[in-house]
Simulated scan of single mutants.
Amino acid sequence: MPASARTLVRPAVLRTRRGRLVYWSVLAVSLALFTAAFIVPLYWAATGAVKAPDELARTPPTYVPQEWHPENYARAWREMDLGRYFLNTVVLAGGAWLVQLAVQVPAAYALSKLRPRFGRVVLALMLVTLMMPVTALLVPVYLTVVDVPLFNRNLINSPSAVWLPAAANAFNIYILKNFFDRIPDDLLDAARMDGAGALTTLARVVLPLSRPILAVVSILSIVTAWKDFLWPLLVIPDPARQPLSVFLQRVAPDTPLNILMAGLVLASLPLIALFLVFQRQIVGGLTAGGLKG
Rank of each mutant, 00 (worst) to 15 (best):
A37I: 14
M131P: 11
V139G: 08
R120E: 12
V216L: 14
R17K: 08
A124G: 15
L234K: 03
Y23I: 05
R18E: 04
F86G: 00
T35I: 12
V246K: 01
R84P: 09
V121W: 15
N157A: 09
P65L: 03
P165E: 07
R115N: 06
D238Q: 10
N88I: 02
V235N: 02
A12K: 12
Q66A: 14
L207R: 02
I213F: 08
A168G: 13
K113E: 12
T47N: 03
A198S: 10
V128H: 10
R211I: 11
S221A: 15
L220M: 14
L56K: 05
V29H: 02
A166R: 03
Q279W: 02
W77N: 07
V90H: 04
L264Y: 12
Y43F: 13
T7I: 01
A168N: 06
P11Q: 05
A110L: 06
R75T: 11
V40C: 06
R58G: 12
L264D: 08
A196Q: 10
L274T: 05
A93E: 01
V246P: 01
L233Y: 11
L138C: 06
R58K: 14
D147H: 14
F118E: 10
R78C: 00
Q104G: 07
I282S: 01
L82T: 06
L31R: 08
L176T: 04
